[in-house]
Design a protein around this nucleic acid. Sequence first.
DNA 1: AAGTGGTCTAGACCACGGC
DNA 2: CCGTGGTCTAGACCACTTC
Lengths: 239, 239
Amino acid sequence: MPESRNGTPAYQRIQAAILKRIESGQLRPGDAVDSERQLAKIHRVSLMTARHALAVLTRDGLVDRRPGAGTFVAAPKIHFNKLMSFSEQMASRSLPARSKVLSCGIIDGEQEIAARLALPSESRLVKIERVRQGANEPFALETCYLSADEFGDLAKAPLERGSLFSILERDHGLSLAHADEQIDATAADPRTAGLLGISRGQPLLRIRQVIFSTEGKPAIYALGLYRSERHTLLIRRYR
Amino acid sequence: MPESRNGTPAYQRIQAAILKRIESGQLRPGDAVDSERQLAKIHRVSLMTARHALAVLTRDGLVDRRPGAGTFVAAPKIHFNKLMSFSEQMASRSLPARSKVLSCGIIDGEQEIAARLALPSESRLVKIERVRQGANEPFALETCYLSADEFGDLAKAPLERGSLFSILERDHGLSLAHADEQIDATAADPRTAGLLGISRGQPLLRIRQVIFSTEGKPAIYALGLYRSERHTLLIRRYR
DNA sequence: AAGTGGTCTAGACCACGGC
DNA sequence: CCGTGGTCTAGACCACTTC
């Protein structure tokens, strides 16, 4: 009888149970998680199923498995390659986050950006331009574009507080899957330099990202310019 | 009788068999791969084992699975978040790659770098400094550091041809697992500008990476400075 | 010696895709 | 309708770690 009670697969219920114990602080890094056999008994499930649950947590780096020893809560987790909103990034470093909205409205004629969002080239777009501040110093200029047909009401949303991500996920039922990013370095133009409080010509980290929904559709195009002395990107690559 | 013939797990042998057919061009993107049941029969293995083999290929993005339909060779693969040597990167874009070795020798007193490699601070290090060229134009300056105790003979290796990765993997039995990278932007100092043929102050993409072996030990520290007009980094982040 | 993760078997039922 | 992937069972043996 797979997927017994509700519609959720057993292995996902087991993962959720473990995650809850980790997030609540009941299980701390280094602590032993229930073994495969214990989980199998507790959740009345076969070994392979308990194993599957742990396999996913292992891949996501939440848990370390040591053959012969056991399964343990992984170290305090640096979130590599994790798609996070600005607010989430700052929160994860327990820094205060603020944004100033420079402009927010509907534009058209941006063919190249429409193309990146897989939209017809004459599509109307929502454009949001914000200065990101951390510790009361501006450190990034971020410009987002979304389809105006789908997200037109964003133009009147309370963007000052509440992150764009949370508005999209809560109010539009949008669930984000991944982002493909293009990263390079560029020199600050006069306007950007002014907004960020640096001198023109200073090197900036430029990040262009296309954020995809779980259905595989491009949902957001974002262009970020980061003061390089204030921000470094952390990435993990695998062989 | 697990791991029947040789010491390789069955699921890895199955993966290898499929990979071979993909890499040889016998299976092209979009083509159907053997189904779980076919694989089980062919390799005389249970369904769960065949399934496990495909699960790993799916996670690595080599293959797409469509419930009810089948398993198919994935699209021409952009290698996101893949740890590749310079030579491999160029090869994957079918561009000619060349390097010029500026210096190659043993140094000491580099405490900060020794620390990044988890070595005692007075450790001797191999230092290799190279200019990377693509299409006959210099586009990156790369400096690598390794433990001199372990890799001292690199100082006399034929680095002009053959990538550092392949030498390490073939001659030193080193197997690389992942790299953690720190990325930011910086301005070209006079020496770097000269070597890369740009004017000083130009923005450069700076990538510092610590490359880990499969045993989890830091093996290489590399500092790369990339001409930003010639190079953009591609990254995928997941929610 | 007892417990653990890693691998594996030989089946099973379900929901869904394509014909 | 048949074949597919997704989930699951109730066991098994091995190599390893911990005590």
